[in-house]
Design a protein around this nucleic acid. Structure first.
Lengths: 250, 250
DNA sequence: GAAGGAGGCTTACAACGTAAGCCTTACGCC
DNA sequence: GGCGTAAGGCTTACGTTGTAAGCCTCCTTC
């Protein structure tokens, strides 16, 4: 409620909310999300855990803030794209949207833990909302009704921000156990072996694996290129939306 | 390594792995995923926490097992669908796949926590793999190349099992804090209020909200029908795959 | 110079997963 | 029939997590 507080406040300490959040991002990037605890973050900053609570309300708030940092990074990257000319043809929405989404994806790929945190948030970040606002703007300029825009956002889901929800990520980048148990590399081989064991229960899958990696299905999970698959799925949705938008306009 | 152990083993106790897992599902259904701890599960079963470790290796294993229970439920429901006739036209893959996915979704809607756990798994459940195998089979009968099948599974992502990754679920069904802080109902009103405050920063979004819920944007997050939105997105992808499959066959 | 608050620190607690080890019971075997 | 064995319960204890409570020490402002 103190109103004369906005600009002045000569900081006694170098520790600020911004510095806390920044350190949290660095720590998560380096050691994984699971390593981001109040105590480890404090250690990183050379202070005690409880001191953090003068800058964040609790861990939830810390994660909110950390999401916001990444969201700002996304918005910054998106802002660098050349904005669309007003006299662009209606069909320009599709490549523009594609570019914005892939730009966001590029940022998120630098912070593999971020999508997990993002999903778990219950409140909005202003930067994220602005991101979505610009997506809405692109679709509107493409002639979408607001109703279609709304459906489109749902259809894109997490893909709107540049990540997809794969069921089984072989490299558990989002998993927290960075310094946990050992077995990590033999994972896909083990999975493949398991599949072979139940070959007769899953004939199509076996055959698919045999055919796709046609030098024999010894390493099955390494053959997917995430970026290609993401763009494939994205383009299906964008093309579908395109068709619906055209139909809307008779 | 005792080989004469498979069928006999007169059980001294009524407590088995199956009963443990079943109780875990019940508990998670009732109190949420966050309430599923080794201690609470033990209490539910009338035993002590450490006794659970005679039936599950650790909590990860417990979650694996719990996923497997739900996966079995899914497979059971899918199995009840009338299997596709061999002389069905190629185009039959699409409604069949749609039905299977929506059936899985119906099961998952009864266990709102399950999708979260499912995502976090690093190992496969046989039931899940068989589920995917049958999807693959449907697409193959529809004339898909294995390559297209593979892309299709990636494009569907979590939608293949019947849930989509919405960025901001207003009702935090998957969130763990069932018995935590209080504020839950005023959430969307609060979010709406926040949006109104930054109206000029997100003009398109404000306008969209104003138009869609055109009795004025007072409750913005209640207007989405999850099932409708899911089917909308699913159909876009299925239609897109359909077109690609046809193109493949010249 | 007194007041007060911002921001650090220490201590303490409850809840979590789980390692270690004890005790009982029931079964298989001589 | 007695005995070894192990399955399956229980108790205790430890380290880690988030965080409540309170102390102290500055710096800023009347």
């Amino acid at each position: 409620m103190t109103s004369s507080q906005t600009a002045g406040t000569a900081p006694r300490s170098a520790l600020t909310r911004a510095r806390v959040l920044e350190s949290a991002v660095v720590l998560a990037d380096r050691d994984g999300l699971g390593a981001l605890t109040m105590r480890s973050l404090a250690r990183e900053l050379g202070i005690e855990a409880m001191s953090l609570y003068h800058h964040v309300a609790n861990k939830e708030d810390l994660l909110d803030g950390v999401v916001d940092v990444v969201a700002a990074e996304i918005q910054d990257a998106v802002g660098r794209l050349d904005t669309q000319a007003d006299d662009a043809p209606k069909s320009a929405w599709k490549p523009a949207m594609r570019r914005q989404i892939l730009t966001s994806r590029a940022v998120l790929l630098r912070h593999p833990w971020a999508s997990t945190v993002l999903e778990s948030r219950t409140s909005f970040s202003l930067h994220i909302v602005r991101y979505f606002d610009s997506l809405i703007g692109l679709m509107r300029r493409g002639g979408f009704s607001y109703d279609l825009v709304h459906h489109a956002l749902h259809a894109l889901g997490s893909r709107a921000l540049g990540f997809s929800q794969e069921l089984f990520e072989p490299d558990g980048a989002a998993a927290g156990s960075a310094a946990g148990g050992g077995a990590e590399e033999g994972a896909d081989d083990a999975a493949t072996a398991m599949l072979m064991q139940m070959a007769e229960q899953v004939p199509h899958m076996i055959e698919m694996l045999a055919e796709i990696s046609h030098e024999g299905p010894e390493s099955t999970l390494g053959w997917c290129d995430d970026q290609t698959e993401f763009e494939f799925g994205l383009d299906i949705i964008l093309d579908g939306l395109d068709r619906l938008a055209e139909r809307e306009q008779h």
